[in-house]
Design a protein around this nucleic acid. Structure first.
Lengths: 197, 197
DNA sequence: ATGATAAATTAACGTCTGTTCATATACAAT
DNA sequence: ATTGTATATGAACAGACGTTAATTTATCAT
């Protein structure tokens, strides 16, 4: 009865929902199956075991890397590059699907070694590299004060990461995020005033 | 057989260890009891149920608030105040016990509403207030450029928080933290150069 | 020494867990 | 129409879960 070819995707989606709320151990195979509308044994037609579902979710987390094209060109615009970066970051922070994946990541990051590996090496490192590359160019152009670009990139991104965590925490309980939502742009202003010469 | 009056504390300690590694749901009453060296039923002589243990751990997390005395006086020293704050933050980040509690917090923050409440209202808010108070004084003294002290405090603390997370992630897998450990102090230098007039 | 109390044990309960198996059903290709 | 394949079902498993009860053991105060 392969009526729906997307049963596998529905399983992943249901698992993301449940893990984002109760963690990996709180998302039982039966609960996932119930959410999809099938019995638990049917899950094993699509995944060899429960951990296999988690692996799929992990790869989905890192499937949308924070890539940017024409960095050299955009970096020369200085502040507007940082603004563009922060706004993209903000959009991701408020995207429903990405928000859930972020929660899954934050919960499992401290419990799963494979996820930590991927996060530190693939994901985080790349974000820093893109940013430091841009900052290096800005320094060469004389727009930004001279410093270690890698360190400066971390200084810039740490605030974004922090705001994203706060937004995530507030939205779980449906609390207003209006005050902190503006911080993404305010951070760019503050940071640019800090580094521009 | 009340040989050891600190059985209750041993239970909490064992629970912290296990939750820091596998989360609340991954720390079963049996595993906690085994780690203490007693049977699972003995746990219930000290705690009414499993959640009661978690509550105790939560209150321990927030029992060491980031308080500071004589803020007015210390704030007038400008950079050295921020340095002092960052070093204290660094010490806490590398303290074995505090490190475990931090992991417990990060894991459960996204799964437990009560913890979120305490974190946002009691803990985090107070940290920001202390810092913004000091920054406000620095502004009055003409040491720091004029801006919203609350926002500036968040800008300062976000980097510390971020470094602490990275340190925590690295240390779980016994990876070297030497490179990032210096960031605490480097952040103070960078930040002071950003805000001092 | 004795009794009260605190803290441990053993055993059991009902429920949930991940996973497997044999079987039934639906669809695609012939 | 028939066959093959993919996907679903229902039943069952062994083990782990949180919790309770009855009982035994140890310590403290008298």
């Amino acid at each position: 009865m392969p009526k729906l070819r997307n049963t596998k995707e529905k399983i992943i989606e249901a698992a993301i929902d449940l893990i984002a709320e109760n963690g990996y151990k709180g998302a039982s195979v039966r609960k996932i199956a119930a959410k999809v509308g099938i019995r638990e044994s049917a899950i094993y037609n699509h995944f060899k075991n429960k951990e296999d579902i988690l692996k799929s979710i992990f790869s989905e987390i890192f499937s949308t890397p924070f890539e940017m094209k024409d960095i050299e060109e955009k970096a020369k615009k200085g502040k507007s590059f940082l603004h563009q970066y922060a706004v993209a970051y903000k959009l991701v922070s408020f995207d429903k699907k990405m928000e859930k994946l972020f929660r899954v990541m934050m919960i499992e990051l401290f419990q799963n070694e494979d996820l930590r590996e991927s996060f530190l090496k693939e994901f985080h490192q790349k974000e820093i590299q893109v940013l430091s590359k841009a900052l290096f160019i800005m320094m060469q152009e004389g727009m930004v004060r001279s410093a270690d670009p890698m360190f400066m990139a971390q200084e810039f991104i740490s605030a974004l990461f922090y705001i994203r965590i706060m937004v995530s925490l507030l939205r779980i309980d449906s609390k207003p995020t209006a005050p902190i939502a503006t911080h993404f742009e305010k951070h760019v202003d503050f940071f640019w005033e800090s580094i521009s010469v």
